[in-house]
Simulated scan of single mutants.
Amino acid sequence: MADSPQITTIVFDLGGVLIDWNPRYLYRKLFTDEQEMNTFLETVTTPDWNEEQDAGRSIADATAFLVAKHPEHREMIEHFYGRWSEMLGGAIQGTVDILTELRDSGRYRLYALTNWSAETFPIALEQFEFLHWFEGIVVSGVEKSRKPFPDFYHLLLTRYHIDPQQAVFIDDNERNILAAQAVGLHTVHFHSPEQLRTELQTYEVLP
């Protein structure tokens, strides 16, 4: 496209874009009733509770807090982090293929900006080799902030001297996309590797 910005930097979200993470992979082994499992995940180990760990709360504190609130679910709550690695479903291969192309082209700086607990992120680093391809990864649990807070995006931009007008940010959460746009980043709201490839082509990042 003639009016495409000059993109020099690609910033990836990780969970839901490059890595398939879902608590249901674990809890389907622990519940015999799907609805009972969904109720537990929606009302006990809620996304809001999990985001506090992404923002830096320790696993020990998070587990103790929830057990005190829902003592009848102690065992299931303790499994959330006790068996956390079983929530990893593997790489989203189509996106990894795109990341491979970008890396091999040598044309782009590659970074990741992720909401992830500082205590569980080393598990992912050990399991997924492609995480070592990035020039830098900003992990929310390490920084004690997270998406969609503006300071978290600014931390990435300032730490690595990224011009937002020359960068594309990829995330599967619309809330995070809107926050990225507010700090000046170009964005792709991720739905599938195929859709990502098409949108990167409009930015003339991929052929």
Rank of each mutant, 00 (worst) to 15 (best):
W21P: 10
S85Q: 15
L26A: 04
L178K: 14
M76W: 12
Q127D: 12
A180L: 05
D54V: 01
K147C: 04
D171H: 12
E204K: 14
A179F: 01
K69Q: 15
K69C: 03
A118H: 13
E72P: 10
P148W: 02
T120W: 08
A64N: 12
L155K: 15
L200W: 09
E78K: 05
P207N: 09
I162L: 10
T202I: 04
Y203P: 11
H154L: 14
Y25Q: 06
R146M: 00
L14C: 02
P47K: 07
L99H: 00
Q195P: 04
R107M: 12
I177A: 05
E204R: 14
D13W: 05
L66C: 00
T114E: 14
D151M: 02
T43G: 02
Q93V: 11
I170V: 15
A180K: 07
Y203V: 07
S117I: 04
R109E: 14
E119M: 06
V142N: 13
V44S: 08
I170F: 10
L14K: 09
Y160L: 06
L110P: 07
G141L: 01
A167H: 06
F121R: 12
G89S: 02
Q53Y: 06
A64W: 00
L185D: 08
T158H: 13
E119H: 09
L131G: 09
E199R: 15
W84N: 05
G15T: 04
H189Y: 09
V96L: 11
W21D: 01
V205D: 06
S85H: 14
F40T: 01
T120F: 07
W49R: 11
S105E: 00
Q201H: 05
Y160V: 01
E78G: 09
H73G: 04
D54E: 07
Q166G: 14
Y160P: 10
T46F: 03
L18W: 00
I98S: 04
R197A: 15
S140W: 01
E143L: 05
F134H: 03
W84L: 09
N115I: 02
P207K: 06
I92S: 05
W116A: 09
P47I: 08
P164D: 00
T198D: 11
I59P: 06
L196M: 12
P122I: 05
D54R: 00
A124C: 08
P5S: 02
W21Q: 03
H132P: 07
L113K: 08
A182C: 03
I98C: 10
N38K: 12
D163E: 12
G82V: 00
V168L: 09
W84R: 13
I162V: 13
Q35V: 04
Y111H: 08
L99D: 02
E36W: 07
A62G: 15
F65V: 05
F31I: 07
